[in-house]
Design a binder for these strands. Sequence first.
DNA 1: GGCGATGATTATCC
DNA 2: GGATAATCATCGCC
Length: 305
Amino acid sequence: MRLDNMLLAEGVSGPEKGGGSAAAAAAAAAAGGSPTDSSIEHSDYRAKLAQIRQIYHSELEKYEQACSEFTNHVMNLLREQSRTRPISPKEIERMVAIIHRKFSSIQMQLKQSTCEAVMILRSRFLDARRKRRNFNKQATEVLNEYFYSHLSNPYPSEEAKEELAKKCGITVSQVSNWFGNKRIRYKKNIGKFQEEANLYAVKTAVDAANVSAQASQANSPATPNSGSPGSYSLSHTGDTYLGLRSLNGEGLNITANFKTPSSCRMLFSSPLMVSQANSWQDTTNPPSVTSPPGPPGSVHSDTSN
DNA sequence: GGCGATGATTATCC
DNA sequence: GGATAATCATCGCC
């Protein structure tokens, strides 16, 4: 019964309605691929399913034919035998039932192997979900910029995700995946991401500095130090902006000093980034940003010297 | 071909 | 339901 239901659901048995196109469509939707890709896979899936369906029906027909032929044959034999010995209708019925049982068990095997074939086809089709393309450089940059400028809380809201998805030309769930992966990988190996973090921090800081310069030219004394982030766009309201403020507060000239990754490392070996990383959800030990293996509080002992 | 990077999936937790 | 962690599978560089 379950086999019957499954074959029906997959569009193998029952009336033909596009050969399980609903299942294929669902799988294609889950795949999240481009419309062209999914339609190619979709038609491929349908073609193979149609093939299975055809084989199933032709085999089923053969079995049914064989069953009725064999039943007739046995009936004839019984009729012939009835000349020599009395055969009750009940005995005939019993024989027919036995034959039908045998054939239905064969049919069951057919259904089972058809189901297996469909499952294999389906799993192969669904495996296409794992096919992936790397995001383009611009998309990765946008995501990284957001991530590093919100390092203290890299959990974009739904709206932010939608915005990022739009900017990057990817789906919201891809954005979620990306942030999920990024958070984990960053947390696992902060040392490795340090340089990248600094680069993006610098990038954002420089952008912010430019914006601020423009703003101060246009408006007068409204600098970031004034404590009024209102003039910054969303992408500059994050932690890097705070970093810029603190750096400015110490009288550092950002644009002059951020020339090489190592100098970036020096400048950002500040409590700022540690606090950023530490303030994530307390599920794991907070990572020490600038000197990963070091004890807590040793973050200033950068290392390269 | 090996290997690291990376996007996607799955199990599990809260 | 969203986040994490582990894992898978593919990409892309060498």
